[in-house]
Design a protein around this nucleic acid. Structure first.
Ligand code: MN
Ligand code: MN
Ligand code: ZN
Ligand code: ZN
Lengths: 142, 142
DNA sequence: TTATAGAGTTAGACTTATTCTAAGTCTAAC
DNA sequence: GTTAGACTTAGAATAAGTCTAACTCTATAA
């Protein structure tokens, strides 16, 4: 799923098939949002997605942006990234990896998992199973 | 700084001296908040602190809770912990360490830094310096 | 001591990310 | 084609956190 089409182009046929394969009905709104998310690897706030999707002729409501982002997270198509205290980012790279977070600019950057070797995960609390291991490397100017 | 006094007891003399040593004027409100934060290691939301501090006779406003938590973070006396998408937690353990976050219960647990050996930090983005490296191990029931 | 400048506190208004509601629209199965 | 239920929507609601402007306290100087 790396299509690299422009928003102005017509919907790539693969995208609807992809959503269907994930048991997601490919509505016009979801296709617009999916196109933004799945044709580039980046970290988007809900507002970013809302602005991007409404830049072209398409109009998608705020509620649908949140609904769709929530659905895609549920289906494992994107991941939430919690690095900023005021908003969630959504990551279209669902492979395990880590992040730099620039405290000054608010910019997020991927760290490939082989760049930070976690020797071992500690014993999990009783009655729990692992969901994810994520490293945030916070950096500052200078 | 591990005093383990109860809120109902009178202010431990060491606490005011401690705040003064950190260039923080020890007002009544700050002492009440400090007592909650510094006499136990735990992870508190602003609301937790507000509720705790107002359980006893003391009354501290929401604004002062936020002001004081912000001041203490600035002075390095506590740390923000970002694991939950809807609120910030404050950690009175400022030594480098990591966290378990239970997605079902919302509970945070410390992981000692020697329990997760990060072999190396990757090359930082140009023009930046390291602020912190934090690992969140998310777990689920079962 | 007392006066005073400025630091700290406060109620409540405000902001803003996110969720909810309830009414309308679309999709897909029959 | 009908229809049930899935989807979308505007706008109201929620909730964490910030701001404002008036009041109170602290600490220093006289
Ligand atoms: Mn917040
Ligand atoms: Mn939020
Ligand atoms: Zn990423
Ligand atoms: Zn901790």
């Amino acid at each position: 799923m790396t299509l690299m089409v422009r928003l102005s182009d017509c919907t790539p046929p693969g995208l609807a098939a992809f959503l269907r394969s994930q048991k997601v009905t490919p509505t016009a709104q979801r296709l617009n949002i999916a196109q933004i998310l799945f044709t580039q690897h980046a970290h988007f706030s809900a507002e970013d997605v809302f602005n991007e999707v409404n830049k072209s002729d398409a109009v998608v409501s705020k509620a649908t942006v949140y609904n769709t982002l929530g659905l895609f997270v549920e289906r494992g198509l994107i991941k939430k990234v919690l690095v900023d205290p005021v908003k969630v980012f959504y990551d279209s790279n669902v492979a395990p990896h880590h992040h730099f977070y620039d405290l000054d600019s608010g910019k997020i950057q991927d760290i490939e998992p082989d760049q930070i070797s976690l020797k071992e995960v500690p014993d999990l609390p009783d009655g729990t199973c692992l969901a994810s291991v994520e490293v945030v490397v916070r950096v500052r100017k200078q």
